[in-house]
Nucleic acid binder design. Sequence first.
DNA 1: CTGAAAGCGCTTACAG
DNA 2: CTGAAAGCGCTTACAG
Lengths: 350, 350
Amino acid sequence: MYGSLKDVAARAGVSFQTASKALNGHPRVVSDRTRARILRAADELGYVPNALARGLVSQASGTIGILVDDFADPALSQFVKAAERAAGAQGHAALIVTAQRGSDPALAVRKMEEQRVGGILVIAPSLEEDERLGVALRRRLPAVSVNHVHGGGIPLVGSDHAATGALAAEHLTGLGHRRIGTVTGLRGRRVVRSRHRGFRDSLRQTGQHLPRRLVAEADWTSAGGHAATHRLLEAEPRVTAVFVQSDGMALGALHALRERGRHVPDDCSVVGCDDLEVTPYLWPPLTTVHVPFEQTGEQAADLLLRRMRGETTARQILLPTHLVVRHSTAPARERPVPSPIRRDKELLQP
Amino acid sequence: MYGSLKDVAARAGVSFQTASKALNGHPRVVSDRTRARILRAADELGYVPNALARGLVSQASGTIGILVDDFADPALSQFVKAAERAAGAQGHAALIVTAQRGSDPALAVRKMEEQRVGGILVIAPSLEEDERLGVALRRRLPAVSVNHVHGGGIPLVGSDHAATGALAAEHLTGLGHRRIGTVTGLRGRRVVRSRHRGFRDSLRQTGQHLPRRLVAEADWTSAGGHAATHRLLEAEPRVTAVFVQSDGMALGALHALRERGRHVPDDCSVVGCDDLEVTPYLWPPLTTVHVPFEQTGEQAADLLLRRMRGETTARQILLPTHLVVRHSTAPARERPVPSPIRRDKELLQP
DNA sequence: CTGAAAGCGCTTACAG
DNA sequence: CTGAAAGCGCTTACAG
């Protein structure tokens, strides 16, 4: 179907080994005339070298593996996109395997090993605590992760989550807020705990304690953020500000606040996290902490490639985040009497 | 690093060919005792078969290629996710290559061919009119696409875009709207033209003509939808409803309507397209046409795998879409006097 | 049931 | 500068 080096060589009237050298551009090793003939033959034949055969002898497949848990997630898909591009720029194709929910992630690693990827990039926050994955990842190949990996030992490229949480807290306390709630992701996740720790510790520095009833857990979806915000306001209607750990959840939070008749930012400020493309177009435009997803994905791929070349590298790279102030935050106004809950229907149907 | 069949065979005291047979589970071909010994040896050695070597002899790499233009796009990432899963379920890994903006997509195809993927799945609407891609795709490998491919000849799995547009139009005219605008994607795209055609033709059936000033083009982003909606309302302030071709752009449209002091749905109805996870949590919850992205990705992968097996298959599969009515649409109320534009600041700053 | 041969398409020393 | 040998790790007939 593709023809082989032998076909090219035959057409050019040389041995297939010479054809190999000419095609691989070894500089002074084939005469210009012969090389030209070989190149032409390859072209006429539509020759496509076989990376499997090349990989077999050179012991390098020219691919990296990317292990993802869910790349329909807007943040993760940005990681993957940037990583694939960075790898491609260095001549590596990306073999992407998703770890199926409920199945052993070591199987995904194994699949990549069979394909002889040169290294593995992990983009799978939901598998942070999975011991099988940690063990499989430490076994043979160079690996780099954008999230924690069970048991450690895998270089990490990420952003400073604690600083991120602190940024949100400082902004809100700076605006005079003293009763601040938060909607977190699943507490099992490191990102979640780190962002929360930064947030909580920063509040503490201004003398604020964060009681349990001001913390609501959600699952990173808009639906989850919506439900959690309702729970939060149920438990403490007097909150004047909410820090939501992702913009997707924040979208649900804004929705819940509206359902409760709370005007943002007048009656309640909201700070998100991530800064997606849509974030400036939420209503009101959301103040959020910008997370450099693309840069992270790119640097993670670069780090992996360097490790594959045997270079010694940093064991951790933390990229800075920064606050983007838009219109969902405003100075605190004490508002002791919470409005009653208005139902969807009443609000929406004319 | 991985050990080879020879290592396993040596440890089990058999020839490597016998080890191969045992490991590949050929049923009656190796005695149970020998097989058990071989399996144990492989296990103890941590043997991982080399898919490159296997692929070289069996002429099948066990991978499919997925050519994507942008999988940070929420719709496309759902396609990819579902396709990867479907392929994985049938024992195929996914080699994902993104066509870099501005570079020849035939290079991406070539890269996949070098890796000897068994077939190519195309998820790249921005390359619909790229002749180089069409030519490259028709050259050798089985291919399936979720969007049009230049020059035709590639089986398509998609949804009925014209019906999608019609669904939106019928809903809006059924509510009594007679001055309906639309925000489309880039007019070069087939999806865009098909959705538009269905929309326009359906309007026509109720005697409505769609003048040029009621059509605004955008680039599929929230930012684009936002700007296009402003242009639309500038050109014709009396519109009572807008059909937006994607939920991402609709988010921007809702924003623009708010900036103009238009209440949705009382002063203007909005219908979106796609039905993403966040869509029910927009404000107001967006009426939209549900597009079966995951199902499309899955069926596309299945179709490709069947073609790779040499089966004759349908040349086109169009999955149905359906309207999901939420709260952004309401019966038309004539409102001849448009409100003045209010600026961000006035609306948002207390 | 087991083994030895041939060959998949390459690259990399090694001769000439 | 060009060619012939060896070998990467497998699978698939073919013998025994």
